[in-house]
Simulated assay, not measured.
Amino acid sequence: MAEQTPGGRREEIVAVALEMVAERGYRGTSLDAIAREVGLTRQGVLHYFPGKKHLLAEILRRREDLNREHLLAGHAHEDWPAQMARVVDHDHRRPGLARAYSVLMAESVTSGHPAQEYFRDHYAAARERMVAAFTDRWGERLPSGLTPRAAAVALLALLDGMQQQWLLDRDQADHPQIIREVLTVVLGTGPHPEDPEPGPG
């Protein structure tokens, strides 16, 4: 069996950590358990990640790299409902990462959790980006009548709530279409151009 490169071993540790966090949560995951799974000693894992918090930071960084809000940056002129449908589909293609992220987010509301500050800052930044994008496109009121802040808060809540539902029941394959339809109402952007024109009255 060929010896793994440092990069390959690091990826293996992250993959195992992701799986364990998704199953057990951050506090239920230990460096010793990760080490056993990848065939290293605890010190071997610490060679790649100086502590469990460093592994947590790596998991969150990877999710940030694929972050759904980042997919929207600089595209305020585009079809938001269609964009968000693509974002939901994008998340569904990475269930392990989505589950680990959701578990960490839920855990972060508990006292002293190391990811609490990350999630607080993350949501504040995401709301700020969305409010700026909505304001740039529509001004102080969206076509639906909502303020940019109200729309941003509702959109983030909708995305997270739908992801939780999907993680509990992955047979729900219609979420991209649902979010597309709901956002035409939330944003007030009207029917999608592909929708059939209403017939004569």
Rank of each mutant, 00 (worst) to 15 (best):
L72P: 02
E140P: 13
T147Y: 00
A132G: 14
G25S: 05
E140A: 15
E64R: 05
G51C: 13
E140T: 07
N67S: 13
L97P: 05
Q4Y: 10
I179L: 02
D169W: 03
E107A: 01
A35W: 09
L146C: 08
Q83Y: 08
K52W: 14
P198D: 14
V185Q: 07
P196F: 07
R42G: 07
Q164H: 12
Y101C: 06
L159P: 05
A126E: 11
P114D: 02
A22L: 02
H75Y: 15
G7Q: 02
L46E: 01
A157K: 00
W138M: 11
D174G: 01
E107H: 00
A124G: 08
H54Q: 11
A132S: 15
M84G: 10
G25T: 12
R137C: 14
S102N: 02
G96V: 03
Q165C: 04
L18A: 05
T5P: 05
I178R: 07
D32W: 06
Q83S: 11
M20W: 10
G25E: 03
L46S: 04
A106T: 12
G51L: 10
K53T: 04
I179P: 01
V182S: 09
W138E: 10
K52A: 15
V186G: 13
A106L: 04
P143Y: 08
Q163Y: 03
E107S: 00
A73Y: 08
P50T: 05
R86I: 07
E11N: 07
H77W: 10
Y26E: 04
R10Y: 06
L142F: 00
V182Y: 06
A133I: 10
R180K: 03
Y123G: 09
L158I: 10
G145E: 11
Q4M: 11
